[in-house]
């Protein structure tokens, strides 16, 4: 294992900038998100706990052009963009967000392989950074990970005070580190320090859910209209919790054309919006309680059935950013016990 002084992080980033577009936590745009490093310093280390916009945006962009088309005679000529070759390095991704990307990988490389998403994935390196100050809204430790989880990144950094301990996790990470200068070899004392930091961080995550109980109760509650109406009453049906969720991957497809020239785009969509399921004849989720039920079930029931993993990593953004403090952990903890409720006809 290696280590690096905090003041030398910028030197590290400068080296990597030669081969990668380096993304770091930034507030430059007015909100915290992963943005291209300005090449100056690592000032973000002073404030960074997590970004508002999750790093999923680096893979599933909030808006992306899929292809262009041009009207030629009676038909259209397609202009497919060349595959994404830009190499990106995401520095400082939190364990919850890295796990979230691993979770949505399953969708994008399922029966249909999404080349747009996957090419970005293949051309990316994730440099993880363990949390030392989890938010009061974080609940990652209930979801099979923790603030120091390193399984989903290429290189993992642990904040030991004035330095970061550097762990190479994947072959890609090892390769990058081999050609990086400035990192020293870590001593046993450094490693011990990191172990203590990780344990302390783990203990700071106090918000808990019981996934076993949820697995049992959620399907039984599906037809429980009274329960879902109750928990959804204060939801305002905005898209914050889904757009900012690192595992929400729903998108819409839109064509734009002007004077015979056009393009097909995809953009984030949200099951919180009534129009999401609007069809000519009917809307199966016109009512708010059905949309809230969908969101919770997709994450905690449908996704596990399909991919054997809960589509939530406990990052807490949906709780922190919600304008009415709708808290998914309260809904999940409040699931009624007992026999399944069947829909009254």
């Amino acid at each position: 294992m290696k280590k690096i002084k905090k003041q030398d992080i910028a030197k590290l980033l400068s080296q990597w900038q030669k081969d990668f577009t380096v993304f770091v936590p930034s507030k430059e745009s007015g909100t915290a998100e992963m943005a291209v490093w300005d090449g100056k310093d690592a000032g973000f280390l002073d404030w960074y706990r997590n970004t508002v916009v999750p790093p999923k945006a680096n893979f599933l962009q909030n808006m992306e052009k899929l292809f262009g088309f041009r009207k030629e005679g009676g038909s259209f000529k397609l202009e497919t963009p060349p595959p994404e070759t830009r190499k990106q390095l995401i520095f400082g991704i939190r364990p919850c967000d890295a796990r979230a990307i691993a979770i949505i990988d399953m969708v994008f490389k399922d029966a249909y392989e999404d080349k747009y998403y996957l090419s970005r994935r293949q051309n990316s390196l994730l440099i993880g950074m363990g949390c030392v100050k989890p938010y009061d809204s974080c609940f990652c430790t209930s979801l099979g990970l923790g603030p120091a989880e390193a399984a989903d990144v290429d290189i993992m950094l642990t904040d030991t005070g004035d330095e970061y301990l550097i762990e190479e996790i994947t072959a890609k990470g090892k390769e990058l580190l081999a050609k990086t200068s400035g990192a020293e070899t870590a001593s046993q004392t450094d490693e011990n320090k990191a172990v203590a930091v990780k344990q302390a961080a783990y203990n700071k995550v106090t918000r808990k859910i019981d996934t076993k109980q949820i697995k049992q109760r959620l399907p039984d509650a599906f037809e429980n209209k009274e329960f879902w109406e109750g928990v959804s009453a204060k939801c305002v049906s905005c898209g914050i919790c889904t757009f900012l969720c690192p595992t929400c991957y729903c998108f819409d497809i839109n064509d734009e054309m002007l004077k015979g020239d056009g393009a097909r785009y995809r953009n984030w969509d949200s099951c919180s919006f009534p129009v999401y399921t609007k069809m000519p004849a009917e809307n199966p989720r016109e009512e708010k309680w059905k949309r809230v039920r969908q969101k919770v079930n997709h994450k905690y029931d449908f996704y596990p059935r399909l991919f054997n993993v809960i589509a939530c990593t406990g990052c807490g953004r949906c709780i922190r950013q919600c304008p009415v403090n709708w808290d998914i952990t309260q809904t999940l903890s409040g699931l009624p016990a007992g026999a399944p409720v069947t829909e009254k006809k």
Binding site: S29, V236, C238
Partner: peptide, 15 residues
């Protein structure tokens, strides 16, 4: 520059 970061979550409208 302000509206470049709007994600169109419509929270402004919904509240």
């Amino acid at each position: 520059s302000q509206f470049e970061r709007c994600i169109r979550c419509y929270a402004c409208r919904q509240v």
